[in-house]
């Protein structure tokens, strides 16, 4: 049943990525058409727009959620590929532990960077 749980969350993570990455792509590439996420005007990656978006806590939250979903989705996919190489039971357990540790470390690092930038933007 453990695999059912992993796979179900893999699908949920995929749906979250689809939505949040969609928002990211709209922000970055449809800014001239929509302009919703670029309050200052101009290009999406202009410093003032970047700062304006970073001040919004919802943006920081969405990026942390996107990070979590992308890490889970990607690491689960990589785990599946590695398992297909014919890993033995002990090796599979090692991969599980390694990927959980790697995922937590990368998530902590990414979250710290996002929150730090959010705080810097709010103070600016």
């Amino acid at each position: 049943m453990r695999e059912t749980r992993y796979w179900t969350w893999h699908i949920f993570a995929g749906i979250i990525i689809l939505v949040l990455l969609g928002i990211h792509m709209i922000t970055m590439h449809l800014d001239t058409i929509l302009g919703w996420f670029n309050p200052v005007g101009g290009g999406a990656v202009d410093w003032d727009n970047l700062l304006a978006r970073a001040k919004l806590t919802i943006y920081a939250v969405l990026y942390v959620v996107l990070l979590a979903a992308a890490l889970y989705h990607g690491l689960y996919g990589l785990r599946t590929i590695l398992f297909e190489l014919g890993l033995r039971c002990g090796q599979q357990k090692f991969v599980n532990v390694l990927f959980v540790a790697l995922g937590i470390c990368l998530f902590a690092l990414g979250t710290w960077v996002t929150i730090k930038f959010n705080i810097i933007a709010q103070l600016a």
Partner: peptide
């Protein structure tokens, strides 16, 4: 059956 088919070598290995 779900304990067997939902395990490591079960249905979710199918791609």
């Amino acid at each position: 059956r779900k304990k067997i088919v939902g395990d490591t070598h079960g249905a979710f290995r199918c791609h």
